[in-house]
């Protein structure tokens, strides 16, 4: 057992956990943040994506102990109180989800993707979104509305960035 201290959704948490515990397991079982889902065992499906120190990672492939001291944002930490993040709004607006299982990972991947493209000053085209979604599998939507949602959210996030300035 090793002590792991993380800042999760802005709050500091500390737990003694086995060295073999995955970050996904830490979030789901130790913190009961069950919005992070596990859909495969080979790091392919992306349902478990969270932000680790601002970067999207597959939490099923990260050991909790290896990231002690880091800051984690999960789907539960994305909205500001009752105000949804623009990516969440866009998924609702464009019917970018059906069963909801892959959705939380899709949204976290979408936010990271938009942030990276904005930081690099690159246009996030539908083609780019499709390529960037390589690590996220959805069985319900056929991706059409997910791509539309991320594209729209990128615009909405512009507004958010401007409002913050």
């Amino acid at each position: 057992m090793t002590q792991v201290t993380l800042t999760v959704n802005g709050k500091s948490v500390s737990r003694d956990v086995p060295d073999t515990m995955l970050l996904s397991e830490f979030l789901r079982e130790e913190l009961r943040l069950t919005g992070t889902h596990v859909g495969c065992d080979t790091s392919q499906c992306g349902a478990c994506v969270v932000h680790l120190d601002g970067r999207a990672v597959k939490s099923c492939t990260a050991l909790a102990v290896a990231h002690s001291g880091s800051a984690v944002t999960t789907i539960e930490g994305l909205a500001s109180g009752k105000t949804l993040h623009p990516m969440q709004e866009a998924f609702n607006e464009h019917h970018g989800l059906q069963c909801g299982f892959c959705t939380t990972g899709m949204i976290m991947t979408g936010v990271d993707m938009v942030n990276r493209y904005k930081a690099a000053g690159k246009a996030l085209t539908p083609e780019a979104i499709r390529k960037e979604l390589e690590g996220n599998i959805c069985r319900c939507t056929g991706y059409h509305n997910i791509v539309k949602a991320i594209e729209d959210a990128a615009t909405r996030m512009d507004g958010m960035a401007q409002a913050a300035e």
Partner: peptide, 18 residues
């Protein structure tokens, strides 16, 4: 727009493993 979306997009869905 779907009524059920809010719980899914905020990670509050309740699946069996949850």
């Amino acid at each position: 727009k779907r009524k059920e979306d809010r719980r899914f997009i905020t990670g509050k869905g309740k699946y069996t493993d949850d």
